[in-house]
Simulated scan of single mutants.
Amino acid sequence: MNISKNKGLSLVIVFIILAVYNIIAFMLPFNHGRMFWTGYFFSMVAILLTAGVGFYAFRREVLRSKVYGCTLLSLVWCYLIAQLIIGVLEMILSDVPFQYGIVLNTILFGACTIGLIATDIAKVEIERIDLKVKEKIFHNKSLQTDIENLITKAPDEITKKMLKNLAESIRYSDPMSSPQLAAIENKIESKVAGLTDAIAIYDSSIIKSSCDELQQLIAERNGKCKTMK
């Protein structure tokens, strides 16, 4: 398994924290009672969780994933620092009933876990939407390219101007899509195919009507996109 530089550094930092914390825990004269082991156990859980989140956060190279990965790391590191401090205090305050330590540490762990899950759910959903937008942008770009290719085949300047205007309309059309727009998007694709055939045989009346209808369909689609937002 390949380990990236960020993963390697995260692992080194976690091992350093693990070593230093264990030295503090077992070299200082703490009373190794139930409260000590409560603080020690939850501190070890926090360290291991930080290591796991570090590996998970750096598993993708997509910029948006990196941004959410940093959010996950920020959250888990805040939890780690808080838990280590609380863990040391629990080792010192060994006379306090250990049940209080369990409750406090469990609440802190639960809050961190919920935050991590909520952040990851948000990341997955954002990535899903982003993928749909990229797919739709590619679709619109493909249509725009098809129209621009037709410009070079246009027999006169009037036709070229109509095609340039049509390409601009597609270029600046709303990139978002949904199942409710499938029918009108299919019509647009069909009209583009018909326009291609009309230019091939140079039927000026069909070329003009196809361009006009495509402009209307694109405007209609953009209007429906606005109503769905």
Rank of each mutant, 00 (worst) to 15 (best):
A46L: 06
I81N: 11
I126H: 13
Q180H: 00
N31M: 11
Y100K: 08
P179Q: 10
E157N: 12
G87F: 09
K153H: 06
I114N: 07
I188T: 02
C211A: 05
A200E: 13
Q180S: 12
T152D: 08
A122R: 11
I206F: 08
G69W: 06
N222V: 10
A118W: 12
C112E: 00
K5T: 11
I23G: 12
H32S: 02
I117D: 10
L89G: 04
L89C: 13
I47G: 03
E168S: 13
S142L: 13
K5I: 12
V76T: 11
G8K: 13
K226R: 14
E61Y: 08
V103C: 08
A167R: 04
S169E: 14
T227L: 12
H32W: 03
L73S: 00
G39I: 00
V20N: 06
S173P: 07
F138R: 14
A19G: 11
T227Y: 05
K136N: 14
Y202M: 09
D212K: 04
L73V: 10
L63A: 12
E61D: 15
T50Y: 02
D95H: 13
T227S: 08
Q99I: 13
I102V: 15
T106D: 10
E168M: 11
P175D: 04
Q83F: 03
P179C: 13
T113S: 15
E135R: 09
E213M: 12
M91F: 09
C78H: 01
T159C: 10
R221L: 03
S210A: 15
G39F: 10
I199E: 08
G52F: 02
R221G: 04
L80R: 09
V62G: 03
F58G: 06
R221P: 00
S209T: 11
R34C: 09
L166E: 02
A25N: 09
K132Y: 08
W77I: 06
K153F: 00
L217Q: 07
L11K: 01
N22C: 14
N140H: 06
E220R: 00
I47P: 05
A19P: 04
C211G: 07
M228L: 15
E220K: 05
T145C: 08
L217Y: 14
Y40E: 09
I13N: 03
A122W: 10
I158G: 05
L195I: 07
K191D: 09
R59A: 11
A200K: 14
I17F: 14
A25W: 05
S65I: 08
C225P: 05
V62S: 14
K208A: 06
T50K: 07
M27V: 15
N6Q: 15
E135P: 07
C225V: 15
K191R: 01
A154P: 01
S209G: 03
S74N: 09
D146F: 01
I16V: 14
N2Y: 13
K164G: 00
Q99C: 10
S65V: 02
T113R: 05
S43R: 01
H32F: 12
M91W: 04
N22V: 07
V62A: 12
D212G: 00
S178H: 10
F109R: 06
L49S: 00
A183K: 15
D212W: 02
R171L: 15
D95P: 03
F15S: 14
I170G: 06
A193Y: 10
S43T: 04
L73M: 11
N140G: 06
Q83L: 04
T152L: 10
P175K: 06
S65R: 07
G39M: 01
I158R: 04
N140L: 02
L93K: 05
N140V: 04
I201G: 05
A200F: 00
K191A: 04
